[in-house]
């Protein structure tokens, strides 16, 4: 093995390995939070966030517009305080409402933004007033069973 052949092979090896890394970066994955431009942060209060997690997607009309960046408990109001980072390319009216939805029946939870009618735009530091808590499946089921039971009692 002479030196130029060795250099050639090592160069070839490094080149295809870098090609593989580019493939993984561009074709296989997406950059979360990296591709957002001039993002701004707003807050929303929920009675119950269910299984919402940090980095969960924020969607409007089904399109990814931001991510959840922080979740903590507000000890004064006994509510969950959720911070959302929204891509600067998108603006929403000030009276936009936020709901915690579930992707599919058992999928991950995300925040859905429903636009309002206000002419002023939502800006950094604002708080979304109208919110709708997560649907907790167990509560839903127990409510359903309770109603059925009540109906049965009425008939008697």
């Amino acid at each position: 093995m002479n030196r130029s052949m060795l250099d050639l092979w090592v160069g070839f090896f490094v080149a295809i390995a870098i090609g593989a890394m580019l493939f993984l970066a561009l074709k296989v994955s997406s950059f979360s939070g990296i591709e957002m431009q001039d993002a701004y942060t707003v807050q929303a209060r929920f009675d119950n966030i269910g299984g919402l997690k940090i980095k969960a997607p924020v969607r409007s009309a089904g399109v990814l517009v931001g991510r959840v960046t922080d979740i903590h408990f507000d000890n004064d109001t006994y509510e969950a305080l959720v911070e959302i980072r929204i891509d600067g390319r998108y603006t929403f009216p000030k009276d936009t409402s936020a709901a915690i939805n579930t992707a599919g029946l058992l999928g991950d939870q995300y925040i859905g933004l429903q636009y309002g009618v206000d002419e002023r735009a939502l800006s950094a530091g604002d708080t979304i007033k109208k919110t709708q808590s997560a649907v907790v499946l167990e509560q839903l089921i127990s409510q359903f069973l309770f109603n059925k039971a009540a109906e049965g009692q009425d008939k008697e």
Binding site: V28, S29, F31
Partner: peptide, 10 residues
């Protein structure tokens, strides 16, 4: 692509 995160997974 939707579920593989560059920083987190790769």
């Amino acid at each position: 692509q939707a579920s593989v995160d560059f920083r987190h997974d790769i």
